[in-house]
Write a protein that binds this DNA or RNA. Structure first.
Lengths: 121, 121
DNA sequence: CACCCGTATCGACGAGTGTCAACATAGACA
DNA sequence: TGTCTATGTTGACACTCGTCGATACGGGTG
């Protein structure tokens, strides 16, 4: 349940505070960078995953129990499936505390997302 | 070839200078907003599309002829297919000038993308 | 007009994705 | 130990997606 078995953590987490890829307008994306960025976007390209992610991100501390966010109109296994995808993409981390499992937004991701969506024009 | 037949232009272009959706950390995303945002992310969730988009975005004026960007390792019909997807997602616009077709990055998208990717963790 | 070049569309194929019901696993508690 | 609750995993299904070759369209140029 910890994240130790996650094979690859793409994008935004390479060092600690620097994004993996140059700005998209700075020049042609290398195939490798394109692959990493696409993986991140892909993880966010499903409405259910987006709602799960926003529910977690908008919780105090950027963390939430599965039981608090599971109401998105799909079955429980499907919720679990989507949370796994987000975790494998490096956007979430998970931690079991007693009976419940808590998901947290990976640190550097929040700011990047907020900046994208809060941007005026 | 003009964009007049595009059925829906999602995200980031509703008014002119305001994004369609609230910041992801501001609260739970509504199902409708999640759908719109997911459509945008989906358009960017393919490495080939990402490279095409970055090639156009990094060209002077944010515009490029297809012939200048077509070298991404896939066949010409596939390039055309991906450019259409980006256009249908509202991320690009296209215009025919004589023999060649030019694609431009939709205005508000550039800044948002750059902000996301240029952000320091 | 005929020809060539740049780009879009069509049809088909294999691979991947979202979803569910059924089952498995892990803690809490009696 | 046994049972209940919360979550993850498995297997199957329909559907979508990325890709290509073949073909069509549109505009120069001869």
């Amino acid at each position: 349940m910890s994240n130790s078995e996650v094979v690859e953590l793409p994008v935004l987490q390479d060092g600690d505070a620097a994004p993996c890829c140059p700005p998209i307008t700075a020049g042609e994306l290398s195939p490798a960078d394109a692959e990493k960025m696409a993986a991140m976007f892909k993880a966010l390209s499903d409405p259910v995953r987006l709602r799960l992610f926003s529910k977690i991100a908008s919780h105090p501390g950027g963390e939430a129990c599965v039981c608090d966010i599971a109401d998105v109109g799909v079955s429980q296994p499907t919720v679990s499936h989507h949370l796994r995808k987000l975790r494998e993409a490096g956007l979430l981390t998970s931690e079991r505390r007693g009976t419940w499992v808590y998901y947290q937004v990976a640190p550097s991701v929040v700011a990047a997302m907020a900046a994208l969506l809060d941007l005026r024009g």
